[in-house]
Amino acid sequence: MKDGLYGGAALVAAYLLFCLLRPLSGTLDPVVDVFTAAVLLFGAFRGEIPGAVFGAVCGLLVDAFSLGVFGLAGLSLTAGGYLAGTISRKINIQAFFRSLLFFLILSAGTFAAWTGLVALIGRSPMPWAGGWILARPAVTAVAAALLYDFVRRLKTRHDR
């Protein structure tokens, strides 16, 4: 129940941020990936099952607002959310640079899975944006690590 409420709130927040950033990001549209950052963060905070479910919902939402095969982003984000939940429980990602590396590896993996699926099933050219799309995992990782650190500090202060 608690996971559902948190998931709903996170989904609304991610979607509002997406709506806000999308028209503002100009030519760097493909670099900003709000949903991957949200899924990895949710998985890291709430665990593998909520992470996978949240990834599936976010992925289907992304696909609903894109022409092409419905379900492609869902597959990669489901796996991303699940792995974020599993790995974050097995290693220590409390330090900022550890979490940055953790999010970088996962966002790169999610990006690679999505790119592969688009090439195999979607048969649609990637929005390269002059190569800037390759910066997506790094931008996503930095955003996720900063937010993770911020929320973790807030929680620590609140618990005291």
Partner: peptide
Amino acid sequence: KGLALAGLMSLQALIL
């Protein structure tokens, strides 16, 4: 947990 992941992935594959 593994079954939940497999279920979600199967659902997406079904949609595809």
